[in-house]
């Protein structure tokens, strides 16, 4: 759905993007993370047709963002980090204006505005002036506006900026719902826990290029099954050193430490190998009372990818 190939962009000699490549399939919810100045906003602005790339290629649903900008605009919804609102317009007028700006036919327009008001939870605020809304309501209104023309692709640049925790939860749920409805979403955010909750993949970007983590991955798959290695905490009943020896004999397992009756191990090969390790321990007569196995969190993987660069 989104194809980005060797995308480059500079501003008056300052590098914005220096050859970024990414492919996002239809229906995917993909995150984009990287340090400040990595090129995230530039990338999203190019995809939103606001900037023209200096080189490379970007296509959305088969249309080039440079030469077929108008077609692309009809397919995307773009939410910038700080979205402006017309404070002196009423909520209903604001949505009607953008429905017109997206050339919705009169019969479709009314339905789209009503749906947007419902979705934003602002149906009872239709006649209120935008300036009277709370920050969370304003953010919901902007998102509702972005969805008026039912875009196939959503491009979100730091959408949770300034939102309170409850509003963030609502936003996450809304994005999950949209994704279930088939909307492809690319979201840039520094709130890694949010990305971890909603994304299936996260692309790494630094200095305008694809960045890689310690294992050389430029796109991190989220979810235990996709991890290259997982860390297991195993509580055993009985001699813990015997259990450690049994674990150490399993191919790909490495004992990280022993504390009381608890073993900490790293297992290469992901969650399936961890499952095999459990079978192996049980087969060796180890009495396992707790087996907790998980991959490193996004925050940890982000730290591994960008921590050294920062230092």
């Amino acid at each position: 759905m989104i194809e980005i190939e060797d995308l480059r962009k500079s501003y008056n000699g300052t590098r914005g993007l220096a050859g970024f490549t990414l492919r996002i399939e239809a229906g995917e919810l993909c995150g984009l993370v990287g340090p400040n100045g990595a090129g995230k906003t530039t990338l999203i602005k190019i995809l939103a047709t606001l900037l023209r790339p200096d080189g490379g290629r970007a296509r959305i649903a088969g249309s080039d963002v440079g030469s077929e900008a108008r077609v692309v605009r009809s397919r995307i919804g773009y939410l910038p980090d700080v979205a402006g609102l017309y404070q002196d317009m009423r909520v209903g007028e604001f949505l009607e204006f953008f429905a017109d700006a997206f050339l919705l036919q009169r019969d479709r327009r009314r339905g789209a505005v009503e749906k947007a008001l419902e979705r934003a939870g602002l149906a009872d605020r239709r006649d209120a002036f935008v300036e009277q809304l709370s920050l969370g309501m304003k953010q919901r209104l902007v998102l509702a506006k972005t969805l008026l023309h039912q875009p196939k692709v959503l491009l979100l640049d730091e959408p949770a900026t300034g939102l309170d925790p409850l509003a963030r939860v609502e936003l996450r749920e809304l994005l999950k719902t949209l994704n279930r409805e088939g909307v492809t979403i690319l979201i840039s955010s520094h709130i890694l826990s949010d990305l971890e909750d909603i994304c299936t993949r996260v692309a790494l970007i630094a200095a305008g290029r694809n960045a890689t983590d310690a294992e050389g991955h430029s796109v991190l798959l989220l979810g235990g099954a996709a991890q290259a290695s997982v860390t297991c905490e195993i509580d055993v009943s009985g001699p813990v050193m015997d259990a450690a020896s049994a674990a150490a004999s399993f191919a790909g397992a490495r004992v990280l430490g022993v504390e009381g009756s608890r073993l900490r191990l790293e297992v290469a090969g992901g969650i399936e190998q961890a499952s095999a390790l459990l079978q192996h321990l049980l087969g060796a007569g180890v009495i396992v009372v707790r087996f907790d196995c998980r991959g490193p969190g996004l925050e940890e993987r982000y730290r591994r990818a960008f921590g050294a660069e920062r230092q």
Partner: peptide, 17 residues
């Protein structure tokens, strides 16, 4: 004023030319 209010983005990414 559209630039100052950051509303120009919304116009430029709409189907208005």
């Amino acid at each position: 004023i559209e630039k100052e209010q950051r509303t120009l983005t919304g116009l430029l990414t709409s189907l208005l030319t």
